[in-house]
Design a binder for these strands. Sequence first.
DNA 1: AATGAATGAGAGTTCATTCAT
DNA 2: AATGAATGAACTCTCATTCAT
Lengths: 201, 201, 201, 201
Amino acid sequence: MSTMRTVQTRADRRSALVLAAYRHIAARGFEGLRTREVAAEVGVNIATLHYYFPTKEKLIEGVVEHAMRRFQSTLEPHGTSADQLRNYLRAVRRLVQDEPELGAVMGELMLRSSRDPTLAGTMEQMYEVWHRTVRGLLKRAVKEGHMRPDADSDEVAAIIVATLTGVSLPSAGGRPDLAMRQLERWLGIGAAPRRPSQATD
Amino acid sequence: MSTMRTVQTRADRRSALVLAAYRHIAARGFEGLRTREVAAEVGVNIATLHYYFPTKEKLIEGVVEHAMRRFQSTLEPHGTSADQLRNYLRAVRRLVQDEPELGAVMGELMLRSSRDPTLAGTMEQMYEVWHRTVRGLLKRAVKEGHMRPDADSDEVAAIIVATLTGVSLPSAGGRPDLAMRQLERWLGIGAAPRRPSQATD
Amino acid sequence: MSTMRTVQTRADRRSALVLAAYRHIAARGFEGLRTREVAAEVGVNIATLHYYFPTKEKLIEGVVEHAMRRFQSTLEPHGTSADQLRNYLRAVRRLVQDEPELGAVMGELMLRSSRDPTLAGTMEQMYEVWHRTVRGLLKRAVKEGHMRPDADSDEVAAIIVATLTGVSLPSAGGRPDLAMRQLERWLGIGAAPRRPSQATD
Amino acid sequence: MSTMRTVQTRADRRSALVLAAYRHIAARGFEGLRTREVAAEVGVNIATLHYYFPTKEKLIEGVVEHAMRRFQSTLEPHGTSADQLRNYLRAVRRLVQDEPELGAVMGELMLRSSRDPTLAGTMEQMYEVWHRTVRGLLKRAVKEGHMRPDADSDEVAAIIVATLTGVSLPSAGGRPDLAMRQLERWLGIGAAPRRPSQATD
DNA sequence: AATGAATGAGAGTTCATTCAT
DNA sequence: AATGAATGAACTCTCATTCAT
């Protein structure tokens, strides 16, 4: 038992540090990420942070993994109903709405990817998965007759991904929910009910 | 001819510094903006930079102005033909394609705006102008019979702005041109020719 | 006429700069003396200041001269009455009371003199003059029968100078007027009236 | 013996830094205080100095405390003989004579106190204690019959403090020991022997 | 006689990282 | 596994001084 707790604790501390860094990046950007503050938030010494993550870069890698996992979890469409596509779009929207940190961090990662080849690879891969997922959903919706056949294409997947991207950024301005509504309309899947709490725009 | 002398005027040096900072932000983000490097790129002493911009923050304000001006210039649709809307969309796309720094800097500003109230105001205003411009173009296209009447709405403007935003970021991944093509298709304005050099995706 | 005015102007500007520096030293110490602020206060460019005073050190020399002149003017006892000594003590006290800058600057100079041999010489000379002046007054007072003969000595002159020094500093604390009163009492010259406005302590 | 190890404890390093700063202020004034030089004198990196004192101002506060403690230690008259007052005056004089830095630093603090309210408070308090201490000694000396009764007053205390102040400054000029001798004479406590080494003037 | 523009040298401060314990 | 102490390198910003005009 006691072994399990200790092991658990080690992983706990690691992910506590990652989570703190994740929040710091969301709140102040890479620009404002300070290892000392991250350590302080978790309540450990700065040297302890370096025990778990030898360099700041390694800590950031941890944040990347975390953000990806967080995002990917929604990318895998769950639920099996015929209107999976609509559910999916809404799930993505809801995710960044409920956890605005995610949008902020994804934005930071996106910008950073042009300077960091490794990150660029990760992001590209993520986009690829995303694109394929959406395209798969489109095909299925068409096959099951929930959508007009002309909608099935890379191009529609591309615009969906682009819109979701634009809509997920913590932008001052932009009208995310209006955009989402129109997207559903164009896709011909706009009918079904929306969360009451989302009524705002 | 007297205008063509090589002597640096005050304004020249100011904008040279702003431009260098602009490029640095595009290349390395706010995270990597170093006043000394900016000064070095222009070929002046760091103290000279501070002669023109008392603080780093003031220099950044200069960059914000520059980026806004650069962007806004395209936001005002020029050309008066009936297919203004298509031209407009393509102009925006071409702008960030020909000058990728702009997309990068706009992305940085967008993220920064959540931490900087002044910048937030500027961005919000810019989005507002952008949204209205697009909506105006939509209305006009409908009135002149180039578009179906049901398309005229805030929602279409919103998705256009969101897509253009998503498409302008220097993302590793994403398929900007596919998305743009589908956007034109949905708007029913996809006919006209495109620049050959843009055929890539 | 116009020649006279020009000549006058040059000297004016010099002494305006010295006076501004004098005030700055009084207000913020040598620690806080900034040539740019001095120039700004006079309303000229920093380069103009350097036209009149090639270095900051030269400007400070100007301030030293000014302060010395300001102080020495009172050191020469004017008035010829029998109670010159009392008048003299009060004149010194009144001087630094009416122009607190003088005490502050003299204090700064005193401290600086341990680091600046030239200034040390100047100060030493000033103290010498001061001491002799006071001793002369003492002797005369004794001779004219206003004071007990045993009081005539270097030692009394020394304590007078020391007290006046201690009393002239812009010290937070200390009770200058009480000290002055006791000094007069010990010298046996305390009778005569004092300025009403000085009643405070 | 375990006490005698050479290892620097936290407190040691702190006070080593304060002491170095104290000496620097004495030698070059606030004007010439450089954190880097202070750190170098102690043999540590500048960052280490900032580990102990987050800002230069905090370091200066440390110096103020040190100087006050150094001074106050003498202000408390020790020794219980009947001629405490004379011993006290001489102790003060000897203190600044043996450690001229103290006079210099006190002078710097005095001047600075007009610009720094916190310091002003500290200095005022110190003067208050000083004044009361001297007055207490005077009263006692009178009561025990070592002094004429008319001498017991705030005014005598004030002139003693003023003289000691004037005499303690590192002035180029002034005749501190003459002044002190006359002070003792006026107080009627001049008899007793003086340290041979002090015979100079 | 006066100035705008420019600079070298250096100031205080910060930060990721290391190391002995 | 954890920490206090220490550091090198770099950062933004300042200031007296210079120079072409």
